[in-house]
């Protein structure tokens, strides 16, 4: 957890093996969920559900495996801006195609 105060290079934040294994199990569970859900026909919601689960998995990887949760705020801003930019490109493109 990020509650252990400030840490600099002399005290690098070391993530426990157990934490990683826990995240891995969650990722496997979400994979099983996305496969199970794909078998059921939810109509138009099916794709969104798949994207939602994939985003949840990506968030876990990004925060724990990629260490962003424990990193300097500058990285969080960095990634947030990049994802927002990509999202904006998607929204504008689809706005064009849907209302054409």
């Amino acid at each position: 957890m990020a509650t252990d105060g400030t840490h600099n290079d002399s005290h690098p934040h070391i993530v426990n093996y157990g934490t990683y294994v826990l995240i891995w199990l969650a990722l496997l569970a979400l994979t099983a969920a996305t496969v199970a859900v794909a078998g059921i026909n939810f109509g138009g919601v099916t794709l969104w559900l798949a994207i939602l689960i994939a985003s949840a998995k990506a968030t876990l990887v990004l925060n724990v495996f990629m260490h962003i949760k424990f990193d300097d705020v500058v990285f969080k801003v960095f990634i947030a801006i990049a994802i927002m930019t990509l999202l904006a490109v998607f929204i504008f493109t689809f706005a064009d195609y849907i209302f054409r």
């Binding site: 994979t31 996305t34 798949a50 994207i51 994939a54 990506a58 990887v61 990004l62 990629m66």
Partner: peptide, 12 residues
């Protein structure tokens, strides 16, 4: 990990 994240979206 990035390669992993890309696959997470490619799969579904």
């Amino acid at each position: 990990h990035l390669v992993d994240i890309i696959w997470i979206f490619l799969f579904p």
